[in-house]
Amino acid sequence: MSPEPPAQPDRKGNDRELRRGSLELAILHLLSSGEAYGYEIVSKLTARTNGALEITDGTLYPVLYRLERAGFVNVRWETPGRGVPRKYYDLTETGRAELARLTREWTMFAKAMTDLLRSEEEPT
């Protein structure tokens, strides 16, 4: 009987966590300049990143749900003239602290990766 292959790390899970983490940072950052509603957040994220960070609606809303449950955002409902209610999201103080933490982590990670890639490009 051949031995079992070594266990592989859950790459799909890691990718999902990385995407989810970066999306959380992007949303908190976007909300730091003022409140916004779901559709507006998707549009702004797509526009400000020239489409590089195009997220599906099905990905955005569960993340907003988590941010709300974690107390990082406040919500308020408003019904404009056309009668369909909109849910506006706004950063709380805890949300601002979380944004600062995530920004620090992301900057350190990005710098480390950039340094690594640059060092490998340079001839030894």
Partner: peptide, 20 residues
């Protein structure tokens, strides 16, 4: 599930927004 009614209202609002 917490905030079920809010989830429904938000999804309805989002769909209406996109339809518009």
């Amino acid at each position: 599930t917490p905030r079920r009614a809010q989830i429904a209202a938000e999804l309805r609002g989002h769909i209406a927004e996109r339809l518009e």
